[in-house]
Amino acid sequence: MIQLDHIERVFQVGDQKVHALHDVGLKVERGEYLSIMGPSGSGKSTLLNIIGLLDRPSDGQYFLDDKDVSLLTEKEQAKTRREKIGFVFQFFHLVPRLTAAENVELPLVLAGMMPGERKQKVSEVLQAMGIGDRMHHRPEQLSGGQRQRVAIARATIMQPTVILADEPTGNLDRASGKEVVEILERLVDNGLTLVVVTHDPELGQRAKRQIKMVDGSIVSDTLRSV
């Protein structure tokens, strides 16, 4: 489903060129649970951003569902993000002035869905996340774990095929971190593809397939022996 070939990503920092990614090739099938690990600066977040179409590779090809997405226009890329990809961030990225329900509703609003239809979906997803009673709270009135659950609800409401999570537990205590991971893993059980970027080995080792990155290259790609 996701296929990366010879991906390069070069940043210009002052006079210097920094190779964030170098000749990265990766193939991810539908329904896989994948973790990308590595020290900071190893390019794992850059890789995730490229998979998520937030960043464009300097060179190489990226096929998403057998389509070369690097050829898409900005508008088409936005549409692809909206329909196929859900993001979960370390810092949640909820809009502070909107309630939990309104935050979850945002992707549907951007997609232009009718309001009646939206309300139904939003409350369903929030119930499924176990925070139905927090629907009308603002982010500042929610705990970290609850915030991340709102963010996951937002990432899944458009029923994407892949969830990209960048340090999803990085800003949570152990208990709520564990809850969040369990929720994410439940998504995999339901057939979604999950890519988790982390430098926390404990989280990374839960994934069936583990990728290690160093200095912009993939150094190992192992399957967890069950």
Partner: peptide, 16 residues
């Protein structure tokens, strides 16, 4: 700025 980034990640095109 973060909110704008988020909207883009959620699939809002530049025009939007």
């Amino acid at each position: 700025t973060p909110e704008i980034g988020l909207l883009k990640a959620l699939g809002a095109p530049d025009r939007q």
